[in-house]
Write a protein that binds this DNA or RNA. Sequence first.
DNA 1: GTCTATATTGAGATAGAC
DNA 2: GTCTATCTCAATATAGAC
Lengths: 211, 211
Amino acid sequence: MDTPVTNASDVPAAPEQDEHVRTRLLNAAVHVFDRKGYASAAVREIAELAGVTKPALYYHFGSKEGVLMAILTQARLQFTQALEQAVVRTGSARDRITALCEDVYGLFEQNVPVARVAHAVLFGPPEMAPPFDLTAFELLFRQAIERIAADGQATGEFRPGSTTDIALAVMGIIEGCNERQLHQAFDPVGVAGVRRLLDLLFDGVTSAQRA
Amino acid sequence: MDTPVTNASDVPAAPEQDEHVRTRLLNAAVHVFDRKGYASAAVREIAELAGVTKPALYYHFGSKEGVLMAILTQARLQFTQALEQAVVRTGSARDRITALCEDVYGLFEQNVPVARVAHAVLFGPPEMAPPFDLTAFELLFRQAIERIAADGQATGEFRPGSTTDIALAVMGIIEGCNERQLHQAFDPVGVAGVRRLLDLLFDGVTSAQRA
DNA sequence: GTCTATATTGAGATAGAC
DNA sequence: GTCTATCTCAATATAGAC
């Protein structure tokens, strides 16, 4: 409220908030897209939430679609970068897969609104938003698991078999956990739950392994 | 095309199709909702696809929302009924769970458009459509698996542990398989894939079970 | 860069004839 | 029950001042 205005040289008057208008618009858009859905979201509401008016939004992003594209581009970059960093690890194949999955789960946990918007676009109708490839994340994730699984099979830690099947099983479990934190009506399983479910997959449900 | 018109007593003129208007509207709505999404779907397009005009739709369903509700109500009934029938089975716990999952996967496989619409509503923004409880299916599915898993633990077929964890792992794998057939860009794994992934969970990924 | 004011289009819903 | 014609309103986007 009564913060003194610093007369920095190239900083224009931003009396209320330090964030740039562009950032405020993006945050507001994520919030509104998340609650109303992209199609039902009103540009007016986004602008008001950001404390500006509609023309400011159109000045920065060109269109409502442009706002969504900016959100998705940023999210895709952030997620893939975090995934690439998480891939390089040492230890047993089991521990490496577990750590990777915990990272991915944590990534969703700390970005629930963006993840929900991205999830809606990924699984939403193709004619709603223009084509935006979000499968890169899925591919990166799957190939990382497949590579670790191949290592595990080479050392004898894992039983032989299709590494793609292993990756699909792991990703299914993680996807299930992620959807439980994306959906309001379900209780999130938490990181501990992720580890328990993965242990189940590694060790098996039955009491005796078959031939 | 050239089917002779039967002059049934109380059947009004339906020259082109035998289906009642209500059914044609529902099918058309599923198709349009699936492609455009509920919010972006135009009532006019639904009516045209069904071969009628807008007032006919409003006569039968009252509103665009009413059409969606009719679709979801019918889908929920159909899915829960099929699930209840699939639960009662005999054999080992492993076989019962596998058969149940194959049934659920097949249910989605044979109703992809409806499943996509339902999935979009379930995971879509809460303020878009009025609240419609689709979690009943999830609950029914989970409890069925938990019950079978408890049986398996009682007979010693399954290792002791949380039956909820077993259910969540199984459902995650199935949900992953279902999403791969709901999404256009992924290759469906098929029923054979479902079985392979479940085998992986039952037998475990590692070569030796730990204490 | 951001505003006020407005253009323009499209969609949900309805009135009333048949 | 289904149609033609229309109402009403909200939403994207823009023009032009400052």
